[in-house]
Computed example of a mutant assay.
Amino acid sequence: MLTIRQPVAVKFILTEQTKQQLIAEHRFHIERLQMELEQLEVAGKQALEQAMAQGGDVAQQVKEQIEAEKQARIAQREQLIEQIQQIQQMELGTEIQNMTVETTVDVHVGDDWTKILQGAEIIIKDGIVHEIRRGGEPVPETE
């Protein structure tokens, strides 16, 4: 026997409650990004004024850095908006990959390697473990 570490996919079943929770989380992140953009605007003006006193090259570098920071946040915001639209269109009952955790698996001579490679999944529904699967098959509760 050998014990190996293996990733476990954690998925959740999309329910109305989960859908609304995801949308609320995304909207919160969008609002945070918007506040960061506003702060960048104010801080950027101050930094640019200070940099201009030091010379054109410094000012240009500061301006480019501020613009890059703004564009990164705008891209994140757009991605979150797109994700909200996707979530709104998803059918209830859809399984969505959420994260990956790690577990240990005992491997014995004679085990079906393809089933071991298929790994395990934990399925969550409204915050409760709904099902555990190993090798694509449900694991009985007695395990």
Rank of each mutant, 00 (worst) to 15 (best):
M1E: 12
M1W: 05
T3D: 05
I4Y: 05
R5G: 01
Q6H: 06
Q6M: 09
Q6W: 04
P7V: 14
V8L: 04
A9I: 14
A9T: 15
T18A: 12
Q20A: 15
Q20Y: 10
Q20L: 15
Q20D: 09
E25I: 14
R27W: 06
R27G: 06
H29D: 10
E31C: 01
E31V: 06
E36S: 11
L37H: 00
L37T: 02
L37R: 04
L37D: 05
Q39N: 15
L40F: 02
A43L: 12
A47G: 06
M52C: 00
A53C: 05
G55S: 08
D57G: 08
V58L: 07
V58A: 05
Q61P: 03
Q61V: 07
E64C: 03
E64W: 06
E67N: 04
A68Q: 10
K70M: 02
Q76H: 10
Q76R: 13
Q76F: 09
R77I: 09
R77V: 07
R77L: 08
E78N: 06
L80E: 03
I81P: 02
I81A: 10
I84Q: 05
Q86E: 15
Q89D: 06
Q89E: 07
M90N: 02
L92K: 04
E95N: 12
Q97S: 13
M99D: 09
M99Y: 05
E102Q: 12
E102S: 09
E102D: 08
V107T: 06
D112S: 11
W113I: 15
T114Y: 11
I116D: 02
A120C: 06
I122V: 15
I123Q: 06
I123S: 00
K125S: 05
K125G: 01
G127M: 12
V129H: 00
H130S: 12
E131M: 10
I132V: 14
P138Q: 11
V139R: 01
V139I: 07
P140H: 09
P140M: 10
E141T: 12
